[in-house]
């Protein structure tokens, strides 16, 4: 019931937003090359559906999926390695912390320089954006294991592997998923920036070209698609989280009822 209500409110909110936008454009006679009304954006999306949905969306989606997947695999592996070896942790962790403070976007041209203007360059930049949130959160999750539970498992005679699989791994899952949520939204930004820097296809490339040609409706159409892509990924991660951590669902439910 609460979820249903929230969904309805969200729908109302979106509808209001679109109506106000449309009204502002029409009543204030905003030039369409500055801010096109939503109806024009949707029309443009329909007109361009073949190139936008058939080509550019797929290109961007490919970069996002490949980049994000690589980050998940390597991020988890590095977090595991840091958890298992003190030497690795000592050597690598400072860079993980530093990476949080430098503007990753400034590093993007470097990656284009190294990986080139084809698909691998875009994937590399997507990895650059998504790798660190996953490593940091997964590693922190592995570290945050409850000390009393750890002692308890030891008194049961658990070996390191059992402690890892039965305690550390499950207790790090919520942390991993909050990192993955951040990474999922970053991945779209990473792919877009990769395309800006040098590309001949993809939604980022398309949007930039449309902007250069003052084709505002087409630009907005590409932005709309990128936003939907980001939201879909976020939603997907949320679903996965619910599936893999069913206890969190119930604990939230009961705490609300009390």
């Amino acid at each position: 019931m609460a979820g249903w209500n929230r969904g309805v409110w969200f729908g109302i909110s979106i509808a209001l937003f679109v109506i106000v936008w449309e009204a502002v454009c029409r009543l204030l006679h905003v030039p369409p090359f500055i801010l096109p009304p939503p109806s024009t954006v949707v029309l443009s999306l329909w007109d361009l559906r073949k190139t936008l949905l058939g080509l550019h969306l797929w290109v961007t989606l490919k970069e996002v999926i490949l980049g994000l997947s690589a980050s998940i695999v390597f991020g988890i592996l590095l977090a595991f390695a840091m958890n298992m070896s003190r030497v690795v942790e000592r050597l690598v962790y400072p860079y993980i912390v530093i990476s949080q403070t430098i503007p990753i976007i400034a590093l993007s041209p470097v990656f284009i320089l190294w990986f080139g203007y084809d698909l691998s360059g875009k994937i590399a930049i997507t990895i650059l954006f998504t790798f660190f949130p996953i490593v940091v959160n997964t590693y922190d999750g592995l570290r945050s294991t409850d000390k009393e539970m750890l002692q308890l498992l030891k008194t049961m005679g658990a070996n390191r592997w059992q402690i890892f699989t039965k305690l550390q791994l499950p207790s790090s899952l919520p942390h991993f998923f909050s990192g993955l949520k951040v990474a999922a939204t970053y991945s779209v930004a990473g792919a877009t920036i990769g395309e800006w820097l040098g590309s001949s296809e993809g939604l980022g490339y398309f949007g930039r070209r449309a902007s250069g040609n003052f084709q505002a409706p087409a630009l907005f159409a590409s932005v709309l698609l990128l936003s939907i892509l980001g939201m879909l990924l976020f939603w997907l991660v949320g679903r996965m989280e619910k599936y893999f951590t069913p206890h969190q669902r119930t604990s939230r439910k009961t705490s609300k009822e009390k």
Binding site: D146, E148, M149, L153, M156, Q162, K166, L167, P170, S171
Partner: peptide, 27 residues
């Protein structure tokens, strides 16, 4: 030995059965 810690230290992601079965699993 069987150890019953101060806070219950039940693993939140395991059900009652799964929690109680933990020492057997470990053995």
């Amino acid at each position: 030995v069987g150890y019953m810690p101060q806070r219950d230290a039940l693993l939140p992601w395991r059900t009652v059965v799964e929690n109680a079965a933990l020492p057997l699993e470990i053995k």
